[in-house]
Design a protein around this nucleic acid. Structure first.
Lengths: 171, 171
DNA sequence: AAAATAAACGCAGTATACTGACCATATCGG
DNA sequence: CCGATATGGTCAGTATACTGCGTTTATTTT
């Protein structure tokens, strides 16, 4: 007990000496962005609950709807996520019969992905709900602010896009 | 084969009919925010590689440095993450000897968390690296834009803070 | 005081999102 | 043509971030 107390006291002293009056958590852009990301995830699930589809799954479905037969690496670049993650998400969607996977004939390494009829139908039916979740996210800003916010987000993403294995490369 | 081709054709038709010329992925705020979150994660790991600490772990450590002996529910609210997630992160930090956990005496349900001396020292040493990762994230914006961006982020988070189990409640 | 409710924690399960290692197939230089 | 290199995919492992359920302990209501 006494030993614990003294260790805690020492830790607090070190913390206050080395760490005091520094940038608090919620003044750090990274933490606000992480939290806003979570909030959007929650809003999306709230609107799309009945479909049992997550934001990333929906993103993948919409990419497939405009680019049927895309390979996994290109798909990953379109979505801005890692190729191993794409394989995970594809497997779950395929298990639900929303996506079909096939090997390419020209290049035996490549696996192609397609929407099934049911996948395409679901994607279409979800659009309104997805759109509402996006609107709710930025609703607290005025229309002019929304434009500025989106422009800044775009600039930040484009400027730092090379970081991580999941670099974004929209067509 | 012919069956597959015709199914794909039907799916594409449904997709283009129900989904055509709609809001593209990267004009949706949620997707830009998700990607910017990933970018910050990558920048943070890049700067803090030698410490082997993630953004959330560092956030938890800094909260503990200002509020030693905090319980897990309050900790979750300070961080804006779920309490089960807090327990996971605490377990990993405790396994590395950076954090100590103890039961409260007054209320036997509650578990308290403290920095160890080593945890406090590490947190202090990491500050500069963490700060660089935050600066790099918003470097593409001018100082005036950064202020506006941070103000808008803060408003958005505060406005939608009630969503999800991980509501944020900074002290 | 007993019963009902609430709070704190834990566990199992699921999804995202990576790293590092490995294998199969293509491509390219000599 | 053949060895080196590059590319696409998979697998194992780790971390974040939840939901839903159950257990223990406090508090509140009757």
């Amino acid at each position: 007990m006494a030993k614990h107390r003294s260790e805690t006291t020492r830790a607090s002293l070190i913390a206050s000496r080395e760490n005091g009056d520094r940038l608090p958590l919620w003044s750090r852009p990274g933490y606000l962005i992480r939290r806003l990301h979570q909030i959007h995830h929650a809003l999306f699930l709230d609107e799309c609950r009945t479909f049992r589809i997550t934001p990333v799954q929906y993103g993948l479905l919409t990419v497939l709807s405009t680019r049927p037969g895309i390979d996994q690496v290109t798909l990953a670049a379109e979505l801005g996520i890692d190729r191993t993650n794409v394989a995970d998400v594809l497997a779950r969607l395929a298990a639900r019969g929303l996506v079909r996977r096939a090997s390419a004939e020209r290049d035996k390494r490549v696996k192609l992905a397609f929407l099934t009829v049911e996948g395409a139908r679901l994607t279409g039916k979800m659009y309104e709900a997805m759109h509402r979740s996006q609107e709710r996210l930025i609703a607290p800003l005025s229309p002019a602010e929304r434009r500025k916010f989106m422009a800044m987000l775009t600039r930040l993403v484009e400027a730092s896009n090379q970081h991580g294995r999941a670099l974004l490369r929209p067509s």
